[in-house]
Amino acid sequence: MKKKQAYIEREREQGHLRLWNDYFSEDATYPAHIFRRRFRMNKDLFLRIVDRLSHEIPYFQLRRNGHGRLGLSGLQTCTAAICIMVYGCAADAVDEYLRLGESTAILCLENFTDGIIQLFGDEYLRRPTPEDLQRLLHIGEMRGFPGMIGSIGCMHWELRNCPTAWKGQYTRGAGKPTIV
C-alpha cells in the first residue's frame, strides 16, 4: 500500500514577495551586478525569458488551484529552474528561498527546458550560419582571441606577474605558473 505524502504549507506567496523585493523591485535589496553574478545573466534577459514563458507556456502561467488559491508565479518557477541549472544543485535546494518542493522544482526544470527549446530553439539553438561565424570571429579578434570560435576552456595561460607566494599553486610540469 502506497503511503500518502504529508502536505507542507510553504507559504509560496511569501516566496514570491521575497524574490521580488530582493531582485526586481524599484529599490531591490541586491544590485544588478550581484544579480548578474548569481543568475549568470543580466536582469533584462532574465525578465524577457520569464515574460515569454509566462505568456506562451501554460505551465508558467499564474492560475488558481482547486481551493481558489494562487499557485506559484512564473518568476518563482523560472527562478527555480535557472538556479538548479546555474548552480547544479539538487531540486530540493530551492525550497527554503523560493518556497516550492522538490517534485515541483523538477517539473519547473523540465517545463523550463522544454519551453526554452520551443520558444527560442529556432533562433538560438541552431547551427551557426556563415554570417554568425564571421560575427563571432570579429568579436573574438576585438577581444584579443583572433581565429577563435567558442570556449577557451582547458587552455593554460601563462601568468607573467604571478605573485611569488602563489607560484607553487599555479605551476605544473612546464615550471611556469599558468591558469586554466
Score class of each variant (00 low, 15 high):
Glu9Gln: 11
Arg99Gly: 03
Cys83Arg: 15
Tyr30Thr: 05
Ala6Phe: 06
Leu137Met: 05
Arg69Thr: 14
Cys154Gly: 01
Gln76Arg: 00
Leu75Tyr: 11
Arg52Tyr: 06
Pro177Val: 05
Arg135Ala: 14
Val180Asp: 09
Ala81Leu: 10
Tyr7Trp: 09
Glu11Pro: 02
Gly15Cys: 06
Gly74Arg: 08
Glu11His: 12
Thr77Lys: 15
Asn161Arg: 10
Leu70Ser: 08
Gly88His: 11
Arg52Lys: 15
Glu141His: 12
Gly168Ser: 14
Phe35Gly: 03
Tyr87Asn: 12
Val50Lys: 05
Gly88Lys: 10
Ser73Asp: 03
Arg69Glu: 14
Leu100Phe: 13
Cys154Tyr: 06
Thr79Asn: 02
Gln5Ala: 13
Leu53Val: 08
Gly66Pro: 00
Gly68Val: 08
Asn65Arg: 05
Leu47His: 08
Ala6Val: 11
Leu107Gly: 05
Arg135Thr: 06
Glu13His: 12
Glu56Gln: 15
Tyr87Asp: 08
Glu123Trp: 02
Thr178Glu: 06
Val180Trp: 09
Met155Trp: 03
Ala90Phe: 10
Arg10Trp: 07
Pro128Thr: 00
Pro130Tyr: 03
Glu56Asp: 15
Leu107Thr: 12
Thr77Pro: 00
Gly175Pro: 01
Leu136Pro: 01
Ile152Arg: 10
Arg63Cys: 13
Met85Phe: 04
Leu19Glu: 03
His55Ile: 05
Ile57Asn: 13
Met142Gly: 02
Val50Tyr: 02
Asp22Leu: 04
His33Leu: 06
Pro146Cys: 07
Glu123Ala: 10
Tyr170Ala: 09
Leu70Met: 14
Lys176Glu: 03
His67Gly: 14
Pro130Thr: 05
Gln118Phe: 01
Asp92Ser: 11
Gly101Glu: 13
Glu102Cys: 14
Gly115Asp: 03
Ile8Arg: 12
Gly168Tyr: 07
Cys162Gly: 01
Asp51Leu: 13
His33Ala: 05
Arg64Phe: 02
Gly150Asn: 01
Gly71Ser: 12
Pro130Gln: 10
His138Tyr: 05
Leu62Met: 13
Ala90Glu: 15
Tyr124Thr: 00
Leu47Pro: 01
Gln61Asp: 02
Leu98Trp: 00
Thr171Ala: 06
Gln5Asp: 07
Phe46Arg: 01
Pro31Met: 09
Leu100Met: 15
Glu110Cys: 13
Gly68Lys: 06
Asp95Tyr: 00
Met1Asp: 08
Gly147Val: 06
Leu107Asp: 15
Ser54Leu: 07
Pro31Lys: 08
Ala28Glu: 08
His156Leu: 12
Glu11Lys: 12
Ala6Ile: 10
Pro31Ala: 07
Gln134Trp: 03
Phe35His: 02
Ser54Val: 09
Arg12Asn: 10
Tyr23Cys: 02
Glu110Asn: 14
Gly74Ala: 09
Tyr30His: 14
Arg38Tyr: 06
His55Gln: 15
Ile116Asp: 08
Tyr170Phe: 15
Arg69Gly: 04
Leu47Tyr: 08
His156Ser: 09
Ala93His: 10
Arg63Tyr: 04
Arg99Tyr: 04
Lys176Gln: 05
Met142Asp: 07
Asp114Phe: 02
Arg36Val: 09
Gly144Glu: 08
